[in-house]
Design a protein around this nucleic acid. Structure first.
Lengths: 212, 212
DNA sequence: GATGTTAGGTTAACGCCGTTCGTTTAACGA
DNA sequence: TCGTTAAACGAACGGCGTTAACCTAACATC
């Protein structure tokens, strides 16, 4: 085995295994992921993987954890290009959420696969799965007056649900097919932008009783 | 084989196969579904299933189709208990969506599994996957003045995304964990109810520039 | 009544899967 | 030099989806 040794690097092989697994998921889907395929691409026998991971599930869990870390970094970077306390910052988070999902399909699918038998605790994830970031941004927007004051958790979950639902529907269905009389086939990002008036002002005709 | 024959029934076995498959998905998850397990519970050998279905994927697709039909009926029934054109009717659709998802977890997971390699066309599904129902309800609400007039497809997709996202997040994470300072652990239905002010009036502080 | 034909099953088998077992090789500390 | 340990290997087990070949009962046709 003439494996290239990175100077000063430790546990290089286990990281390579995780990367190969992520790539294979991206190429063929999670369902088609096999330990033998991972091992072959790494250049090692399948049982060797069990020296680094307790099994396939543990390996996939590690891939998820890594993907979440990248996810959080991506969101944080996108947010920083807008002033604190602005609604623009909230909007940028939503757009980054969707862009990450579309550009890192494998990671996103692994992260939010609803096939996992036991739901994950958000707190166990690096960066809390991006939720604390969203929460902090919402609080700042409320304090600056850009958003209606209220329960920041409720508002955060509302925003999260909306963007996440749109992403999931776009991935699961041809949502463009729903836009029968629409102008062409809008991109998911377009849809999100067109959602903004709803997010800001709601779906109702404003009346005194509503605004009380 | 002393199989019970239903009087006048045809293709009973294929329907029984679909039902057993749905039950097994509910019990052990889609990932653990196996043709051999289905066959054993039906009381038949595994290759016999290939007389009725082209393979496992086709069988699962049939389970999905059946689940969608039940989904549509459920939604339609929930909607009918509220007057046409009312926002209550729109809200009832959302609640039915979430209740169905929680009570028919297996069906919902199969329906919206994002692991499918090729997205489905909504039009191919029975009842269009419930979307035409939502769209009609939204149009009626707009015409009656209960909702702000606008593109009904955009508003429908917005509502759909929000509810679907909340359901998906609830299923994928312990969303209750996000409510750190909340009052106990609200049920998903509670969360949806508390979203209603956001849906109606938005997240912004109403100003003249917003409402123009 | 003999004779295809077909529906609806059977068993055996192939190749792939996750995983375990026992073994081997190489590095290292005492 | 010896024992230990890390890190790999090949072989094998049981289960998977699927295919192939075969059987049997019902039924239409000559």
């Amino acid at each position: 085995m003439t494996r290239v040794e990175v100077a000063g690097g430790e546990n290089v092989l286990s990281e390579e295994i995780v990367g190969v697994a992520r790539d294979l998921i991206a190429e063929k889907g999670l369902a088609a992921l096999s330990m033998r395929a991972i091992a072959e691409r790494v250049g090692v026998s399948a049982p060797a993987l069990y020296h680094y991971f307790d099994g396939k599930d543990a390996l996939v869990a590690r891939v998820v954890q890594t993907a979440f870390a990248r996810f959080g970094e991506y969101m944080e970077h996108a947010m920083r290009s807008h002033p604190p306390g602005s609604f623009e910052r909230v909007r940028a988070l939503g757009e980054a959420y969707m862009t990450f999902a579309l550009e890192n399909l494998a990671s996103f699918r692994v992260i939010f696969s609803i096939q996992v038998p036991h739901p994950r605790d958000l707190e166990d994830l690096p960066g809390g799965g991006g939720y604390p970031l969203l929460r902090r941004t919402v609080i700042e927007a409320m304090e600056s007056g850009a958003m209606r004051p209220g329960d920041p958790d409720l508002a955060s979950l509302y925003l999260w649900s909306m963007v996440h639902g749109l992403v999931t529907l776009v991935l699961a269905c041809r949502v463009e097919g729903c836009q029968e009389g629409g102008s062409g086939t809008p991109s998911p990002q377009d849809l999100l932008r067109r959602f903004q008036p709803f997010l800001m002002n709601g779906l109702m005709v404003p009346t005194d009783s509503n605004e009380g």
